[in-house]
Design a protein around this nucleic acid. Sequence first.
DNA 1: GTCTATATGGGGATAGAC
DNA 2: GTCTATCCCCATATAGAC
Lengths: 204, 204
Amino acid sequence: MSETSKTPRSVVGREGVLDVAARLFRDHGYGGVSLRKIAGAAGIKAGSIYYHFGSRDEIVVEILDAGIRTVHESMRQAVAALPEGTGAETILRAAIGAHLRALLDASDYSSANVRIFGQVPQSVRDANLPTRRAYEAEWDNLLSRLQKDGALKRDVDIRRLRLMLIGALNATLEWFDPKRGSADALAQTYTDVFLHGILAEQES
Amino acid sequence: MSETSKTPRSVVGREGVLDVAARLFRDHGYGGVSLRKIAGAAGIKAGSIYYHFGSRDEIVVEILDAGIRTVHESMRQAVAALPEGTGAETILRAAIGAHLRALLDASDYSSANVRIFGQVPQSVRDANLPTRRAYEAEWDNLLSRLQKDGALKRDVDIRRLRLMLIGALNATLEWFDPKRGSADALAQTYTDVFLHGILAEQES
DNA sequence: GTCTATATGGGGATAGAC
DNA sequence: GTCTATCCCCATATAGAC
């Protein structure tokens, strides 16, 4: 190692600040986290933050972007890993499971995103928009393809379906408790409901 | 009229303050609304608020409670108005429709509740809990009854089903746009998906 | 019931030492 | 790369006049 072995006594550096900030924003919301609190959790002083970032909202935008990218990548890979000719039900199960696991298990960034997006000022929302749009397009492409193949009912608007689906999945963050069941089990239940409904039998 | 005809130049009084506060909280979130802004929108000065309320959070608690009560009452009446022996599908359609209309069309209080509940301090959340629990129990009772009658699949946990359902309905607040379709139409689509799923045909 | 004035505290951000 | 010190603004809340 050409570098001297450094054992950072604090969680310093740009990345460390982002990590603790993501967790704090997820736990306490946009308005509940000050630069002083972020600095305190990272083991530095508030003024030092400005060496790494130009403003508080610059931190927030980076966290929002990283959160979406994490879920997007997770979902994209889960679907891409399936063999050719996989059925619609299996594809949707993979996509929903990946989204939910990334949100509930894997990443402080993705959960922070869902938690605070509705609380941030318009300028921050706008900065996050391109990244969001890309993920939304991924879902729209998937759902359109399945609908064109005849796997999905024809009378559902794709955009509305995507909004309903992602909205429902993200809402689980508010009540999901790992002590009551895994994210995987929840994904199973959710997929069952969305694909087949909750009625016991069909009506004419 | 024994009272002199008063044409309040400002939206004053306890109720007026609550009305404008509910709208502001819905539009800008918990952290985005100060007493000065509430007072400004109501046409009075910030200090005057304390004649009606003991603190900012006291206003918030009242708005949260009123929001739940509105949706609860709307849903309860919609179900109670159905004749004896109504089928499960019609009952659920009425309940979901009532919840969604109250949330999206009718009340600034109910939308404010959904919007800011996740942002308020724990003490405020606790104060709102009993009212929430009562509405949750209303849904659990309805769903349990339908499941016992054999109308719903047996393998779904009622609590989880209720969390998924209400969470999904409330999530529509983030993207619903009346210019793209009525709350009624959205309720139709949502009920269809939840009751029957989105797959075009059953798999063995 | 609403006003003005003010106490008190915390926030984001900047400057310059180390 | 982090510190200390500080500027300036805005927040909640209180006190007392009208």
